[in-house]
């Protein structure tokens, strides 16, 4: 159930990125909202959730805006999984550590995408890519802690579970009558 909610959030994040956030492009880069969410899910709930939310968000990105189906699913799932390995080590109380985790996530995600892209024989302007990567890391590191705080306070899994339990109790009550 929680993953359905995550899917809806991911679609909203993708649309926001494709429309509203195009006004926040700095040096050709805008914040990767789905990546920030995947990193945050991984950091808070572990490698399994990081992997699955990355897989879900990436697959939706591939289907909605991508060209090669599976490319963003792979890069985001791997990033989510690796972010999950840092669960318990990154606390929201320390914004610098949280920011560093988001910088690392951007490096892993964009670096992996670049490697796959380069390996498939595309023309690449290495200096330009390095610049984009640098700005992307900086941008994600600056915006990530805010998203992380929101994901932490929203506590999606606990809320969905509570909602699910409440509905189940209500249904059981109706059946009992």
């Amino acid at each position: 159930m929680a993953y359905v909610v995550i899917a809806v959030i991911m679609v909203a994040a993708l649309i926001t990125d494709a429309t509203f956030l195009t006004h926040l492009i700095v040096a050709g880069v805008k914040p990767d909202l789905p990546l920030l969410l995947v990193t945050s899910f991984g950091l808070l709930y572990g490698p399994r959730t990081g992997f699955l939310s990355g897989l879900l968000g990436g697959l939706l990105q591939d289907l909605l805006y991508g060209r090669v189906v599976g490319l963003f699913a792979l890069t985001k799932a791997v990033t989510g999984y690796l972010a999950g390995l840092a669960t318990g080590k990154v606390y929201r109380e320390n914004p610098l550590v949280v920011a560093a985790a988001f910088v690392a996530a951007a490096l892993i995600h964009d670096g992996l995408f670049y490697l796959i892209f380069w390996n498939s024989g595309h023309q690449v302007f290495t200096l330009g890519v390095a610049g984009l990567l640098g700005v992307s890391m900086l941008y994600n590191g600056m915006t990530g802690p805010f998203i992380h705080r929101w994901v932490y306070s929203w506590n999606i899994f606990e809320r969905t579970k509570r909602l699910f339990d409440r509905n189940r109790r209500r249904q059981a009550g109706v059946a009992g009558l």
């Binding site: 992997f51 289907l63 060209r67 090669v68 189906v69 599976g70 699913a73 799932a77």
Partner: peptide, 30 residues
């Protein structure tokens, strides 16, 4: 996780070439 990654890599190799038509799922989502 390894199986999922393998599936994704094969999916990528299937869709890497420019496609004449997009899938029904992509169309519906759009």
């Amino acid at each position: 996780a390894s199986v999922v990654v393998l599936i994704l890599v094969s999916l990528m190799s299937f869709t890497a070439r420019e496609r004449e038509r997009i899938s029904a799922l992509e169309r519906a989502l759009a």
